[in-house]
Design a protein around this nucleic acid. Structure first.
Length: 351
DNA sequence: CACACGTGGTG
DNA sequence: TCACCAAGTGT
């Protein structure tokens, strides 16, 4: 039995969370959870997948639109692929959307619409890796699993003043995080430690003065907090070039393509175009008097910069190039495009 | 293990 | 302007 006077780190963190928990559309706050309210696993799963490498601010509206349009995993599983990809457009990492649908269909078809409630079973589902499996098990099912995301890595590296760089230090950080994971309120605890990293123990200017872990924090004692966690240096981004072709019919219809499932922007709607390379081959989708627009589209992906030239031509009535999509004026929504393609559309529209 | 995979905010 | 960074996963 733990001494009621002595407070350990996880208790301090939970106390802090009880006072500072941020309100989010997918979250059941500590007060409601204490009253027996459990989160909807569908909403926990959807939010966690959206939050992979993505900020809360960027996710909020997407989450609301998704849950308004598809309120259950069965509803999502029954949705056409292009509607889900269109709703995800702009959020990035589009493999998440493809895996989201795969996962929804497995849960609907093989689990009767009820998400599995263990780490091991969750980990087998598409798009659910070690972090997300632990997060769903902890948050949705209150299992004492240890979440290890960028926030927790930073908090643990600082708390224990660990100087070994990521990703090599990941196993050590995971052990440290596991040692702190409590058996009581593990769902609130998982959110507490991530909230701490997101709001107090931030990468650039941590607010150590108001941190609930300021006393035991070894990096703060050593003055090394802003140097941690160390990371192995990243490779420089090369610049690639490309051409895109925007053709419009007199009635307003536009010529687009559905990108292949594999690779960059996989499964997304886009403009037909060249390869993206040092010296892209300028090969329009049909013969016409293509005009090059003034200006260019600049966009940065995870691992390269891209500069696109935009070409335009009238689309002859009756022409429908093989494997391309002719979208009626009213069926085309710019918001269905990934951001780089939307930038090209903006440049063309304002020509 | 290293790399591919988006985007928007921040300093 | 630009590198870094965000509730990572799949290959």
């Amino acid at each position: 039995m733990r001494d009621a006077i002595q407070s350990d780190l996880s208790t301090d963190l939970l106390d802090w969370y009880d006072r500072n928990a941020r309100v989010m559309p997918w979250r059941v706050g500590p007060g409601d959870r204490a009253a027996g309210v459990m989160p909807d696993p569908y909403r926990v799963w959807l939010s966690e997948v959206m939050l992979q490498q993505t900020t809360v601010a960027a996710v909020r509206d997407y989450f609301t639109r998704f849950t308004t349009r598809w309120s259950t995993v069965q509803a999502l599983a029954a949705a056409p692929d292009d509607q889900v990809m269109g709703e995800w457009a702009g959020l990035g990492y589009y493999a998440r959307a493809r895996n989201l649908l795969k996962c929804a269909r497995v849960v609907a078809d093989d689990y009767g619409g009820a998400f599995p409630d263990t780490y091991d079973a969750l980990l087998k589902l598409p798009g659910i890796g070690p972090y997300t499996a632990a997060a769903i098990a902890a948050i949705a099912f209150d299992r004492p699993e240890t979440v290890l995301d960028g926030n927790v890595e930073r908090v643990m590296a600082r708390l224990h003043d660990i100087h070994e760089p990521l990703p090599g230090s990941k196993p050590v950080l995971k052990n440290k995080a596991a040692a702190l994971t409590p058996n009581t309120r593990p769902g609130d605890y998982a959110q507490a430690v991530m909230d701490l990293g997101a709001t107090i123990c931030t990468p650039k200017s941590p607010a150590c003065g108001i941190c609930p872990l300021r006393d035991p924090c070894q990096a703060r004692a050593a003055g090394t907090q802003t140097d941690l966690p160390r990371k192995t240096p990243k490779k420089p981004k090369p610049t690639r070039y490309g051409h895109v072709y925007i053709a419009q019919r007199e009635d307003g219809a536009l010529l687009l393509e559905r990108r292949p499932d594999k690779g960059l922007l996989g499964g997304m709607l886009g403009w037909p175009g060249s390869d993206w390379s040092d010296t892209p081959v300028n090969t329009p989708p049909f013969s016409a008097d293509w005009q090059e627009l003034a200006g260019e589209v600049r966009h940065t992906f995870t691992h390269f910069h891209l500069i696109l030239r935009i070409w335009t031509a009238p689309l002859p009535a009756g022409l429908h190039p093989h494997r391309l999509i002719v979208l009626d004026k009213h069926a085309f929504r710019p918001s269905d495009l990934p951001t780089v393609m939307r930038k090209a559309h903006d440049l063309w529209r304002n020509r």
